[in-house]
Simulated assay, not measured.
Amino acid sequence: MNRTRCLERNFEEYQNKLDSNNEVLYYPLIGKSDTTEICRHDFFLLLLVESGTGIHTIDFIDHLIRPWQLHLVLPAQLHLLEISKDAVVYQFLIATEIFKIFAGSFRFGMAVYRKSPVFDLNEEEFLSLSNEFLGIRRDIENKEMFRKLVVARLFVIGYYVSQMAAQLVEDKTVYKGHPLLFEFLALIDKYYTSHRMVAFYAEKLKVTPNYLNVLCKKDFYCKATELVDDRVLLEAQRLLIAGVSIKETAFELNFSDVSYFSRYFKLRTAQTPKSFRDMYLL
């Protein structure tokens, strides 16, 4: 997989088309798509693989592409897609406003789907999702009923995804993530560059750090501090591959000095900022 000259870019040509009149776009990939740039965008991406192979890198983690798969890319995630010549892949680009409407159909908190964004499907699951994809493609053309029909189908897809996600977690009892955790994630996005201590977020949420940890372990299967660190590291990686110097990256993320940032980065990724950056730049 060629990762030289990997630069961040937004899907501007698609982002500009996503508006109140075009809230869902259909974008098929037929044949080889040799992407050499890491892409970041502000919409939700649903990707259904009918045939072919390749690699889909989401937030710097490689996922092997195989027939009969569903891939999710959440708003603001980074991804890089390479597929084979025989690949048939169907994609829907969904405006954040629409995503927020049907996100409630996802059974688990979004952190679960960030960690497990790819689902292998059996024949029945693939055919069911194919029918919904085909229906959405058809409904997009019906402007009068567009929102009701498409959103209804997206809710159905969300329920299918929830059923598959249940197989990935130990506790298969039906539940939704605690509302406080969604507030926690929103606060992380707002304050991660200036606050990395769980105690800060616990105080904002008016709970103890221990209670916040208990909720995170129950619903996200990780410690609260891991969610904060994940967001900090993702931004650090984004800046580094965009060509920002290590010193400037440390400054942007409010680390006291470069050495501390380098130790923080290496402890959590097992590589230095320089070695990580060199993987993606010439």
Rank of each mutant, 00 (worst) to 15 (best):
Y191A: 11
S130F: 09
E124M: 10
F182P: 00
L64A: 15
Q91R: 15
W68A: 03
P75L: 02
V112W: 09
L127H: 10
S116A: 11
K190I: 08
M145A: 14
F155Q: 14
A95H: 08
V169Y: 01
M145N: 14
E97V: 14
K148S: 11
Q77F: 04
H178R: 02
T193I: 09
V73G: 02
Y160A: 02
L78Y: 14
N142H: 14
H79V: 04
E82F: 07
G109H: 15
K100D: 11
Q163V: 10
L70Y: 11
L121A: 01
E124H: 09
L154Y: 15
K143D: 04
A87L: 15
R114T: 13
L187R: 02
R107C: 05
I65S: 12
S162N: 03
L187D: 07
E170A: 08
A165H: 04
V118T: 11
A152T: 08
V169R: 13
L185S: 08
V169Q: 08
P117M: 07
V151H: 05
A95W: 01
L185K: 02
L180G: 03
G135E: 03
V73P: 10
N131L: 09
Y159Q: 11
I157T: 04
T96P: 00
V198T: 12
V156R: 13
Y159R: 11
L180C: 00
M164T: 00
F200K: 08
L127T: 04
I94L: 13
I98G: 13
H63L: 04
H178F: 00
L134H: 06
L121F: 05
I188Y: 05
L181D: 02
A103T: 02
Y192G: 09
V169P: 03
K115D: 13
A95F: 00
R147P: 04
P179M: 07
L80P: 00
L80H: 13
D171G: 12
V174D: 09
D189H: 11
A165P: 02
L64W: 07
E124R: 14
L129H: 08
G109W: 13
F146N: 10
H63Q: 11
A76Q: 13
G177C: 14
V118L: 03
H195G: 00
F184D: 06
E125N: 09
D59W: 06
G109C: 10
F182V: 01
D139Q: 09
P75D: 02
R196T: 09
Y201W: 03
E144Q: 14
D189R: 05
F133A: 09
F99R: 13
L154W: 12
A95P: 05
L181Y: 03
P117N: 04
E124A: 09
A87E: 15
V151P: 12
M145E: 13
D139R: 09
V161H: 05
L81Y: 00
Y90C: 00
L129G: 07
G109E: 08
R137C: 12
L64H: 14
I61R: 15
V112C: 10
Q69Y: 04
H63Y: 15
K148N: 10
F184V: 01
G135V: 02
T173P: 00
Y159L: 05
S105I: 00
L149F: 01
G109A: 12
A165G: 07
I61F: 15
N142K: 14
S105D: 01
A166P: 00
E97I: 14
R153H: 11
L70K: 11
Y159F: 06
L81D: 05
A186E: 01
A152F: 06
L72R: 09
